[in-house]
């Protein structure tokens, strides 16, 4: 009887220490990252980034996106829906965080499509067909072309543009900004400079609603 009590108490103590330790650690981490994001606000929005929505919208969502990331493609239609549900209120700024192997080349292709004014249709086509060109967490840029047909893109010009130093430097800039802002996973959202308290669609909706409400006053 005494042994059983000892065992149960020990097990409960172990689990409690773990839970309290996790809480403490997470709180400390959140404070630290909030501080570093606060001091790195300048890295959030760059002139070169693709933007969706009205320029003077009061709510700015900055999304760090990897075209080869599954969760990004799952979130994308929801974010677009949020934009259309709140016309003139939300602006989406896309930043690249091509963490998947080979994904930087796909970003370059998207930037090349942007030069032909077809960025958003190209992005949507690729996100929709992602499983066909990004299997096993590896993006294969050679497989994207068939999915871009019908958008009226000049592929030859795209292939040349993809190698341009301008596009390569955009990707490098975004990656280094992602590092400065502690972005290690995609998608990562910042709503008016504030990161999600924890990852999840509901958290994003709450943060956006809060920003819209405070902008209304």
């Amino acid at each position: 009887m005494k042994q059983k009590t000892l065992f149960i108490v020990a097990a409960v103590v172990l689990v409690l220490v773990f839970l309290i330790g996790s809480q403490t650690y997470n709180r400390k981490k959140a404070e630290e990252s909030a501080k570093s994001i606060q001091s790195n606000q300048a890295y959030l929005v760059r002139m070169h980034s693709p933007v969706l929505g009205k320029d003077n919208a009061p709510v700015v969502i900055v999304e760090f996106l990897d075209p080869a990331c599954e969760t990004c493609s799952e979130f994308y239609p929801h974010v677009k829906q949020m934009l259309s549900a709140n016309p003139d209120k939300i602006k989406l700024v896309l930043r690249y965080a091509p963490f998947h192997h080979g994904s930087d080349k796909v970003v370059a292709a998207l930037e090349a499509a942007r030069k032909q004014g077809k960025f958003w249709p190209a992005l949507e086509a690729l996100l929709k067909t992602q499983h066909e060109w990004a299997a096993n967490h590896t993006a294969n840029v050679d497989l994207i072309w068939s999915h871009l047909e019908g958008l009226g893109l000049n592929f030859q010009k795209m292939r040349l543009d993809m190698l341009s130093p301008e596009i390569i430097s955009i990707i490098e800039q975004d990656l280094s900004d992602a590092r400065a802002l502690n972005v290690t996973m995609t998608p990562e959202y910042f709503v008016n400079g504030k990161p999600l308290p924890s990852f999840g669609y509901q958290q994003l909706v709450d943060l956006v609603d809060e920003a819209i409400a405070s902008a209304g006053h």
């Binding site: 689990v15 220490v17 330790g21 996790s22 650690y25 997470n26």
Partner: peptide, 10 residues
């Protein structure tokens, strides 16, 4: 629990 702390929390 310690190793889970390293991987899941940290």
């Amino acid at each position: 629990l310690g190793s889970l702390f390293f991987s899941e929390i940290m």
